[in-house]
């Protein structure tokens, strides 16, 4: 796996000729060797069409391509970094939480509204992340940022997990999400956040939750 955790907030990646990685701009802390950083107007993979889609989606976090031969250290803003290793499945993550990921992973954008229906759209409003979520699929690793570190909660068909949308970081696996309201309607009125809305994740997989209700 290309990412080595140096500490809870920094990861190191080894890059060899012929490989490439993508990282958020500004995430490089230091490097040794001959490594080049190219900002892509495409914003990662997928060409210009995908970029336009992403800009409309509000997922315009600029990415850059990292190529060459050497080691690169990544980190951002002192946020905690969590490495997720994928073996064929799909990771759903908000774009601005992605610190860096393997070029071997297929990057895509998913319209969350299509999965959660109307509630999925509300979800976008709640997290303020737009209605689109970045997907990474295949074999490789991704480094994801979170405020205050991440706990992993397993989701099984018998045990759905409810998450505060503000604390939601990412999820993987065959998971359905929908927004539910746990408080009575009367309690929800006049309250912008908190427990009024909950993201309900059901199916089979893992959800990553950060130790904070603060968005990045």
């Amino acid at each position: 796996m290309p990412f080595t955790a140096l500490n809870s907030r920094m990861v190191e990646a080894r890059i060899a000729p012929g490989q490439r990685m993508f990282s958020q701009r500004g995430a490089m802390l230091a490097y040794r060797g001959e490594v080049s950083f190219t900002p892509n107007i495409q914003g990662g993979q997928g060409g210009i069409g995908s970029m336009i889609g992403r800009r409309i989606a509000g997922e315009a976090t600029p990415l850059m391509t990292v190529e060459g031969s050497g080691t690169v250290m990544f980190g951002h803003g002192g946020h905690h970094v969590h490495v997720v290793d994928l073996t064929g499945e799909t990771l759903y993550v908000e774009a601005d939480r992605l610190l860096a990921f393997d070029g071997s992973l297929d990057q895509g954008t998913m319209f969350m509204g299509s999965q959660g229906g109307v509630m999925g759209m509300v979800r976008g409003q709640v997290t303020g992340q737009g209605l689109f979520t970045t997907t990474l699929k295949g074999h490789g690793s991704a480094a994801v940022m979170a405020h205050g570190g991440v706990i992993e909660l397993p989701i099984t068909p018998q045990r759905p997990v409810h998450v505060d949308p503000q604390a939601y970081v990412a999820h993987r696996g065959e998971v359905r999400n929908k927004l539910s309201a746990a408080l009575g309607w009367r309690d929800m009125v006049g309250r912008g956040s908190g427990e009024a809305f909950q993201l309900e994740l059901s199916g089979q997989g893992t959800v990553y939750v950060q130790a904070s209700e603060e968005k990045l």
Binding site: V161, H162, D164, G194, E213
Partner: peptide
């Protein structure tokens, strides 16, 4: 504390 719940599983009810 209000708003401090980040996740739960099982059946929970919240009362302000």
């Amino acid at each position: 504390k209000n708003g401090a719940m980040v996740a739960y599983d099982g059946q929970m009810s919240f009362k302000k």
